[in-house]
Design a protein around this nucleic acid. Structure first.
Lengths: 230, 230
DNA sequence: TTATAACATTGATGCATATCAATGTTTTGT
DNA sequence: ACAAAACATTGATATGCATCAATGTTATAA
């Protein structure tokens, strides 16, 4: 499989973003002409904290983690799955990535020249409006993340994270998490050892089931109570 | 002083936001007609976490704290001073406030019907573009906040906060902080007692001077080193 | 103008959580 | 197929920080 492909069918792409429906066909063509579909293998960096933003990133297929790199530890802010823009606010703000994005599995990322997107946004208000909604939702999500980190302690945080995956991401009681324990820890803002400890605690208590990377939420009410109480 | 005033001179307002310059005069009039200037006394809530977003909020004069209310403690995300929109992302996202905003001194807030702003944004792409930039910057700021909370410990966080006020907010070595020790603690994500302790530690070491609410940064290099090392 | 509450300060104590350590298990690359 | 590295697990230890407590100080309201 080649590393790059020139996009050639954005208008009919099955992974197309809703915001694109707000554009005229020939404007989508503009994006298409500047759009490179890049194949990333699992574990590759899509963008790197501290570098300049030159492209808009659209996750067509696969999944990625968006995280802040610290001196000792990383903090995963969100897991993003297919058909989503990633890190739009970096286009309109500083133009410097505040975070690193790494693929969790083999993924396809559409990379579109940042200025093309900005120009289209400046011309097409409905398109920009969708992007803005997108950014706003992302901001709200980060706010919730901050609350978790600041207000809850380990057990509550982990309960929250498990419920979030079950209810918002996979929409199922059983799901396979493409994260290592270390990554799950970085997502929950705690040490890897404590993540393992508490997971097995929940398992022993029959609240969840664990089979490698497959999690089963057995008693969501109890988990919700733990998340509630912190 | 009356509690409410109907706006009548937005086009010539000295506290006018830059985004407004992107609008036609008659569009500014639309905002003006729907704009109530509300006088808040120190300590009053401008909006409340969990309630519906019905208005765009513009801080014409004064200062406010934007914070997340938790069960035990609050977390102040930012201090906002005059001539700034506050919480724009709530207009485009959930339409529910994720935070509470309270005045730190007597302040004037312009309240404009949310739908008027949204309609104007949908009609005027340059205006929306400015708002989007605004939201994106706010998001980046929160990212930095998360890093601080997650990666640094008390001394580093407080050093960061003091430098931030000195360099970004007041742009002076000496500044008067309109925050109580408790609020400074909530801004730095730590307990009030430890805030006091560390402040006096810095004072004893000659790194800063404290005279009530007036702070003097005496040795910014050392403070920066502490912030750096965490 | 006095009473009451909010604010500020300092020391002592306890606990949540990270870190260290040891060991087994699973990937990954060659 | 094998070695090396990353991952996972569990227990023991250390510590950063919140919490509690006591007391003084400054606002605020009746």
């Amino acid at each position: 499989m080649p590393k790059f492909t020139q996009a050639n069918s954005c208008n009919t792409c099955p992974y197309k973003d809703y915001a694109l429906t707000k554009l005229q066909t020939n404007d989508v063509d503009l994006i298409q002409n500047s759009c490179l579909i890049v194949n990333f293998k699992k574990g590759e960096n899509v963008c790197k904290q501290g570098t300049e933003v030159t492209h808009a990133l659209y996750l067509a297929k696969g999944s990625v983690k968006l995280y802040i790199e610290g001196k000792n530890k990383n903090l995963i802010l969100k897991i993003i799955t297919q058909s989503k823009y990633i890190g739009l606010q970096s286009l309109f703000g500083d133009r410097v990535y505040q975070y690193t994005i790494t693929t969790l599995e083999d993924s396809q990322i559409c990379m579109i020249n940042a200025n093309i997107i900005l120009d289209l946004a400046k011309k097409n208000v409905n398109y920009l409006f969708e992007l803005t909604r997108n950014i706003s939702e992302a901001t709200n999500f980060v706010y919730k993340k901050i609350i978790d980190i600041n207000q809850k302690q380990l057990r509550g945080r982990l309960a929250d994270v498990l419920l979030h995956f079950s209810e918002n991401v996979f929409r199922s009681d059983t799901f396979e998490l493409k994260l290592t324990r270390k990554e799950l820890a970085e997502y929950s803002a705690m040490s890897m050892e404590n993540t393992v400890r508490i997971l097995n605690e929940y398992k022993k208590d029959g609240i969840i089931g664990i089979e490698g990377k497959v999690f089963t939420i057995k008693q969501p009410e109890i988990l919700r109570k733990v998340a509630e109480l912190g």
